[in-house]
């Protein structure tokens, strides 16, 4: 009797496990590669945010003064930001992120920006098609 109970019990447990397994099955349908996925849109929205962030940074008056001191036209720089790839924007905005920690970092960010432009002129990269 005891073993019978045990058996019915385990049958029930297996049935429950199978049913919950079927219900909890995460994605029933895998989307074909040609569909625009939500994660893809997340990446794009992050790049848009970073672009806005870097543009905000460039519109700060202290930054504009520094750029002008280096002979970089602010309007040009803002146009060029539009040409940066996601990875480059991430580099720039992560530098801006740590900016409050030290004033020297402003130099670093501008330095990176100028390096991007120089590499472009040298033909290593093609970030700023206008150059």
């Amino acid at each position: 009797m005891k073993s019978l109970l045990f058996k019915t019990g385990s049958v029930w447990m297996m049935a429950v496990a199978m049913i919950t397994g079927a219900v909890l099955q995460p994605s029933a349908y895998a989307a074909p590669a040609g569909m625009v996925s939500t994660q893809q849109l997340v990446q794009e929205s992050r790049v848009d945010q970073q672009r806005a962030y870097v543009n905000d940074f460039l519109s700060r008056s202290d930054v504009q003064a520094q750029l002008e001191a280096r002979g970089v036209d602010v309007a040009d720089a803002q146009l060029r930001i539009a040409g940066l790839t996601g990875a480059e924007l991430a580099t720039l905005s992560s530098q801006i992120d740590v900016l409050p920690a030290g004033e020297g970092v402003l130099e670093t960010v501008l330095f990176i920006l100028v390096i991007f432009m120089l590499l472009d002129i040298a033909g290593v990269t093609d970030i700023f098609p206008g150059l």
């Binding site: 994605s27 029933a28 349908y29 895998a30 989307a31 569909m35 625009v36 996925s37 939500t38 849109l41 929205s45």
Partner: peptide, 15 residues
């Protein structure tokens, strides 16, 4: 656009 695509993709994933 974002909410519509998110919802549609999740509905697709659920069949």
């Amino acid at each position: 656009r974002l909410m519509s695509m998110g919802l549609s993709n999740q509905l697709y994933a659920q069949g």
